[in-house]
């Protein structure tokens, strides 16, 4: 455990001292702020439009912040995370392999599992902070409006789990290569695949379709954004995280029997 924290702490600090971390953080919050402000502006425009037409009063009674501001905001942020998380995780193993510090790690009395968990915790910590910073949007809505807090909380939980799952996948991509660009692109492709894997589900027979749908991260994330927390989704996210770390550990360990 001590080793895990040593590695996690080093990883975390190393991310925070790299310029790319600040570029990613700034970019993420810039886009997030832009989405948020425009969604709120559009929402208020719709409300005023609807209420100015008498007969649309009914429709205006249905307008709510959760569906019209938070849900699209979360969906957009998820897409941005698909691109930004690999930028953070691409370094974790690839960089160590390139500079040779990998040899230091692997010749220390530390298990490969500990190395992987440590690196995961470090990167996940950074990404969690990144997601946590977007809570200012929720706080603004809660301060000036009355969104359903439960639905909002489920959405944030979904976004956090999604981001952490992405970290596990990105880490695996990084463990496959010593080239950061390849690591980033591989990670990006894997994450995109997780996003779109359910697309052919409707034209497939029931069972394969259901399996593809289950595999898609959007299925579980989308449900959480609407305010439902399903134990199935929690198991899915946990499995993706554990599975990603397991594959990473395998990939690190594979040096030993190649």
């Amino acid at each position: 455990m001590r080793n895990v924290f040593a590695i996690a702490g080093r990883e975390f600090r190393s991310i925070f001292t790299s310029p790319i971390a600040y570029v990613v953080l700034t970019g993420f919050l810039l886009l997030g702020g832009w989405f948020f402000f425009n969604l709120v502006a559009r929402f208020n425009l719709l409300v005023s439009l609807y209420s100015s037409f008498q007969q649309m009063g009914d429709a205006s009674a249905q307008l709510n912040l959760n569906e019209m501001v938070l849900a699209p905001l979360f969906q957009n942020l998820a897409v941005v995370l698909v691109i930004l998380v690999p930028m953070i995780t691409m370094r974790s193993f690839a960089e160590e392999k390139r500079t040779g510090t990998y040899e230091l790690l692997l010749t220390s009395p530390v298990g490969t599992g500990q190395i992987v968990v440590g690196k995961f915790l470090g990167a996940a910590g950074f990404i969690a902070i990144m997601v946590a910073l977007t809570s200012i949007y929720g706080l603004i809505l809660a301060a000036y409006g009355n969104p359903e807090i439960g639905v909002m909380a489920a959405g944030y939980l979904g976004l956090l789990l999604l981001a952490i799952t992405f970290v596990a996948v990105g880490l695996f991509a990084s463990s496959l290569t010593e080239n950061q660009i390849i690591a980033a692109v591989t990670g990006l492709v894997m994450l995109l695949l997780l996003f779109v894997i359910a697309w052919p589900a409707d034209s497939l027979p029931e069972t394969p379709g259901a399996i593809l749908r289950y595999l898609a991260v959007t299925e579980h994330f989308g449900q959480m954004v609407t305010g439902i927390i399903d134990t199935k989704s929690l198991i899915y996210f946990a499995s993706m995280i554990v599975g990603g770390m397991f594959l990473t550990q395998r990939s690190v360990e594979s040096v030993r029997w190649r």
């Binding site: 080093r10 190393s14 001292t17 040779g100 510090t101 990998y102 040899e103 230091l104 010749t107």
Partner: peptide, 12 residues
């Protein structure tokens, strides 16, 4: 162990 390239983290 000192490998051929010293295993240093440049940012530390």
């Amino acid at each position: 162990y000192l490998p051929e390239n010293p295993p240093l983290y440049p940012e530390m």
